[in-house]
Computed example of a mutant assay.
Amino acid sequence: MYKSLLIFSLLLFFIQTISAQEKKEPKHFISITNANTYIPKGAGVDNLDHKGHFVPGFGIDYLYRFLPKWEVGIMADFEVGEYIIPHDEPLKRENALVLALVATYTLIPNWNVFMGGGVELEKDHNLGIFRLGTEYAFPIGQQGWAIPLGVFYDIKEGYDAWSISVGVGKAF
């Protein structure tokens, strides 16, 4: 009985030691980003004749890896500024919050493409969005830190927008 218990204990210790030595692939990635969005149909509130408008912003992204090349997550972007989309009935946007659920696919290590949908929340009128994009995460050291650089395109109700973002993120 003691011999069997000793052998079983040594076997469990051996398995645990080998498992601890295997490098575990992180499943979570969170980043804080700074973005600049270009709205081709947009105009500043002080110059309605001008076509095209840039809006600064920041965001928080969270991704969960459920397969080696696939992740799901949420991208939350806050646009800091005001602009108008001129139409028969102008659409005014001020400090909009964009929330998108996305699925990502890893093309090569550190380079993902993503797509998803969500909503742009704004005090006057909320809009549905569809997002397409890509992001490359430049690794920093061995602790899971990275600098993500992304480009994405939002198709919104009534207008579209291009964004470029850079940030800092951590895989864990």
Rank of each mutant, 00 (worst) to 15 (best):
I108T: 13
T106I: 14
E82Y: 07
I164Y: 14
G73W: 00
S31C: 03
P86S: 01
D77G: 04
L5G: 09
P139N: 03
G158C: 13
P139A: 05
D49K: 10
Q21E: 10
L11V: 14
P109L: 05
E157V: 08
G57T: 02
I147K: 00
V102Y: 08
V113G: 00
G44P: 09
I39P: 05
L132V: 05
K51W: 10
L107Q: 04
I18D: 01
I108Y: 09
F130G: 05
H125I: 09
L6G: 00
I164K: 10
Y136K: 02
L99M: 06
I129K: 01
T37P: 04
F130E: 01
L5W: 09
K51Y: 11
V151K: 05
L121F: 12
A137Q: 09
L149Y: 12
G141V: 05
N110H: 15
L10W: 09
I140T: 05
G141F: 10
Y83K: 03
I74R: 02
K51Q: 10
F78V: 04
A20L: 10
N47P: 04
T134D: 12
V119A: 05
I32K: 11
G117P: 00
Q16T: 15
L12W: 10
A171Q: 15
Q21Y: 10
E25S: 13
E122S: 09
L11H: 13
G150N: 06
N126E: 07
H50K: 13
K27W: 07
P139I: 07
G116V: 01
E25V: 15
L107H: 03
Q143H: 06
H53I: 12
Y38S: 03
A171K: 15
H53F: 15
W111P: 04
I18N: 02
D46L: 02
G52K: 03
I60N: 00
P139E: 04
Q21W: 12
W70L: 12
P26L: 01
R93A: 09
F54K: 08
V166F: 09
P139C: 03
N110P: 13
G81W: 05
L63K: 06
K24G: 06
Q16K: 08
R93V: 15
P148F: 04
L6D: 10
Y153L: 04
A171V: 05
H50S: 11
S19N: 11
I60V: 15
P68E: 08
